[in-house]
């Protein structure tokens, strides 16, 4: 038989970017513990719509942990109480019957609230646009085996590339720093020969954009690494520091 729980939700509601927000409390009964957290929120919204109330706005897209769209700060942790998962991969079996669940948007000056639980994360897109790419000339496709890449480097680049840009690192950071995100994006390109060429320019441009957008200064607390759903390592930040400083010292 399917097991269900009854829960109380404290949800942040905010009508618009300039308006004052507040918490609202909703009771939700008979939530299957096999349902995902976002399915539970769908249930809340259905309940609200049936009561002719406005549903809770929250970000989501793929619902399988790869798009980086879902956010939510749940009970004191970005992406909730489970480790190494996004909010959409979080299941209700992680909660107890009768528990109160507090749901808040990411809090950071660089991620202003748009509505309810949705924040504006375009700052990340701007950082990527500043240099998080490889300039490719059109022409014949070279054979992949013509450039040998050590397996270790390929693996590490792949690990860094697994960053989905969800912003949990910024949400978890007491300094509102985006260093884990930026370092992952700089790292995965810097470790491969195709990206290495533009390494110095990329590090400088992305860090400059990150500073300009008002993200904080990293103090290596490591909270980002703990909360990252993709396990991006803190050593990426050291690599970014290295890339940035050596680029600057060459100028």
């Amino acid at each position: 038989m399917e097991k269900t729980i009854n829960i109380t939700l404290k949800v942040w509601r905010q009508n618009g970017p300039k308006e004052k927000g507040r918490f609202e409390t909703y009771k939700l009964d008979k939530v299957s513990i096999d349902s995902s957290f976002l399915e539970m929120l769908d249930m809340v919204n259905e309940q609200l719509i049936n009561e002719y109330k406005e549903p809770v706005a929250f970000d989501h897209d793929c619902r399988e942990g790869i798009c980086g769209m879902c956010s939510l700060y749940i009970n004191g942790r970005p992406h909730g109480p489970d480790d190494d998962v996004t909010t959409c991969q979080l299941h209700m079996r992680k909660f107890k019957d009768g528990q109160t669940i507090t749901i808040e948007p990411w809090r950071s000056a660089a991620f202003p609230v748009i509505k309810d639980l949705i924040v504006d994360r375009r700052a990340f897109d701007k950082i990527i646009a500043a240099g998080g790419y490889v300039s490719v000339n059109t022409g014949g496709v070279p054979d992949a085996n013509s450039i040998a890449i050590p397996k270790v480097d390929a693996d590490e680049a792949m690990d860094s590339a697994s960053c989905i840009g969800c912003g949990a690192c910024v949400a978890a950071c007491k300094n509102g720093s985006a260093m884990l995100f930026v370092s992952a994006k700089v790292s995965h390109l810097a470790m491969l020969p195709q990206g290495r060429v533009e390494g110095a320019r990329r590090a400088k441009a992305m860090v400059a954009k990150m500073d300009e957008l008002g993200f904080g200064n990293c103090t290596n607390t490591g909270a980002c690494e703990v909360e990252c759903p993709k396990n991006i390592s803190l050593s990426n930040i050291a690599r970014l520091n290295r890339e940035f400083l050596s680029a600057k010292f060459q100028d």
Partner: peptide
């Protein structure tokens, strides 16, 4: 200087549910 900038970057709104991230050094915070 860094602390003032970081507080600004963090924003005025703090989390109502606190910070329950585990395995973070006391000193670093």
């Amino acid at each position: 200087i860094l602390t003032v900038q970081n507080m600004k970057a963090r924003g005025p709104q703090s989390y109502a549910s606190g910070n329950k991230t585990s395995d973070v050094e006391f000193a670093s915070q």
